[in-house]
Nucleic acid binder design. Structure first.
Lengths: 220, 220
DNA sequence: CGGTAATTTGAAGAGCCTCAACTAGGGTGG
DNA sequence: CCACCCTAGTTGAGGCTCTTCAAATTACCG
């Protein structure tokens, strides 16, 4: 059995702070979380919004120093993975090791997409891209969600994710709503026109199907 | 023998275009290269500047679709790695697999840093952070380089890397020079005050020493 | 040496931020 | 049960950063 303890965590819990020593990693079983980097001036950059099923804290597991702050946006359940377990995976399960490798590559590519979004598109497009990304990933877990995306993030959180202020996030979401692209509800958003949202944001889904053809056979 | 052909490539060569089918990966033996994503409007975001010794094209090797465009900034030498070779590494070399994993984590973290730089700092700080990053990495290969960083990038390239226009890159580099933080030469930059460059950019080096304590023993 | 790419500089405007005030909800304690 | 507070969202005004457009200058390469 690879996973160990399950643990209930409440909203706002920090699973790891930036300077904490490296330990294991987590799998988010339910709820939402974020990984973030703090800046010297006190602001922060959210590097990833975690949905149920996501593996969190891999950089901290693989590298020496603490790296990102991982904190809960909602209450939820996490299960922990120790470093020793990671070691044994690489020693004993070649195919699983390669799958880990693929998984990190997907994350890496997703980061590149967000880099391009923040570096090369305007505020409206960045928010559209974030919403589409969250919607596509939510849909993997819940294909029946339709166009309604549960969104337990404040506008400040959204701003920290896409490099904007909360004030400007507010204005741009109003614009998207006025254009009929989204509809806003309490703690949720309806994506009324995903095709146009994708067009204005340049969003492409990377979550289709990773290529497993090159992995070692599941021999043993 | 894991590496295969070495190949000389000239400046401007595109090793892979964004939509190309997935193949292997490369190790850059000499010269500089960049990985980039193209945007619908024709602009591009450079996701990584590659220095000699870097592994390039890992996402394309691990995932199905083509992903990033990899192109040479200067002439140089690359050696290629096929997907089949990657498969055999994961099957037969647990420790090497884990090292690959660590390597990708370092890259991932480095991307997070740049995300924070672009999302949360101004133009001057972004350029300072890029210069420091390149200097630290160059220094790993050539500890004797002193404060002189060879920089075979146009200002347009720099802008594409940090999310700015070439015009504004030009102005900000002039500001850095006027402040006495850098000194500009043809195809190179002197970093006159790395401490202050780090202070204004919030740069922290991630290239110190990855933690290898958890890796499987180099048994066989 | 001619031609093209890269850098430099100026001026004007757009986009986003800052500051500030106000509104709405949700929880808490009296 | 209501008063209060604290968080989150909303809206306006003004200013600064960065972009855009344009032109001139310099460096590079055949």
């Amino acid at each position: 059995m690879l996973e160990s303890q399950r643990r209930a965590v409440s909203r706002g819990t920090m699973l790891r702070r930036e300077r904490d020593p490296a330990d294991g990693l987590w799998v988010l079983q339910s709820g939402w979380a974020v990984s973030a980097l703090g800046m010297p001036d006190g602001s922060r950059q959210i590097t990833k919004v975690h949905l149920p099923g996501d593996v969190m804290g891999t950089p901290g597991a693989a590298l020496s120093g603490g790296t990102e702050t991982v904190s809960m946006l909602t209450g939820g359940m996490v299960s922990t993975f120790s470093r020793a377990q990671l070691t044994s995976v690489f020693r004993d399960h070649p195919r699983l090791s390669a799958l880990f490798f693929v998984l990190v590559q997907v994350e890496r590519l997703s980061l590149c997409d967000r880099l391009a979004s923040i570096g090369r598109t305007d505020a409206r497009a960045r928010i559209a891209a974030l919403l589409l990304d969250l919607a596509h990933r939510s849909r993997l877990a819940d294909p029946a969600m339709g166009d309604r995306l549960a969104l337990p993030m404040t506008q400040e959180d959204i701003g920290d994710a896409v490099g904007l202020t909360a004030v400007h996030v507010n204005r741009m979401m109003r614009v998207l709503a006025d254009e009929g692209l989204i509809e806003r509800e309490a703690g949720a958003v309806r994506l009324l026109d995903e095709a146009n949202l994708a067009r204005i944001s340049g969003y492409v889904s990377r979550w289709s199907e990773p290529d497993t053809s090159w992995l070692p056979k599941p021999a043993e």
